[in-house]
């Protein structure tokens, strides 16, 4: 009845898949960001779990913190872009953003 590395990895996989579903299912760009954050969190969970069950040190946690920084930067820039899109087209439906289709 001990909790091992595999348990955490399975939770991580589930969170990641949930994030993927969010990204695929939603048309609202903010919702897609939500999905991306879920996926990043899943990866972070794996990093911290590996750190805990690995050879020691804080390497995994340090990487998790870097991922956190990236996520923050990404969310800020993405939202700024979305606001611009919203200003221009009055909607943020990704299915309507097809200006670049071939």
């Amino acid at each position: 009845m001990t909790i091992g590395l595999m348990h955490y990895l399975v939770v991580g996989a589930a969170l990641f898949s949930a994030g993927l579903v969010t990204v695929l299912a939603r048309r609202n760009a903010v919702a897609i960001l939500i999905g991306i954050e879920l996926m990043l969190n899943a990866a972070n969970l794996n990093l911290v779990a590996f750190d805990r069950y690995g050879p020691g040190g804080v390497r995994g946690q340090v990487f998790a913190l870097f991922v956190l920084v990236i996520a923050a930067a990404e969310a800020a820039v993405a939202l700024a872009i979305l606001l611009n899109v919203f200003d221009a087209r009055d909607r943020i439906d990704v299915d309507a953003m097809t200006n670049l289709k071939g």
């Binding site: 960001l33 946690q61 913190l65 996520a71 923050a72």
Partner: peptide
């Protein structure tokens, strides 16, 4: 997992920062 600092950073940055940003969005 014994990662107290990362856990706190998670609460502060994700919940306090990114999520608020998303809600604003």
């Amino acid at each position: 997992l014994g990662a107290d600092f990362v856990g706190l950073a998670q609460v502060i940055v994700y919940v306090g920062g990114i999520l608020v940003l998303l809600v604003f969005g």
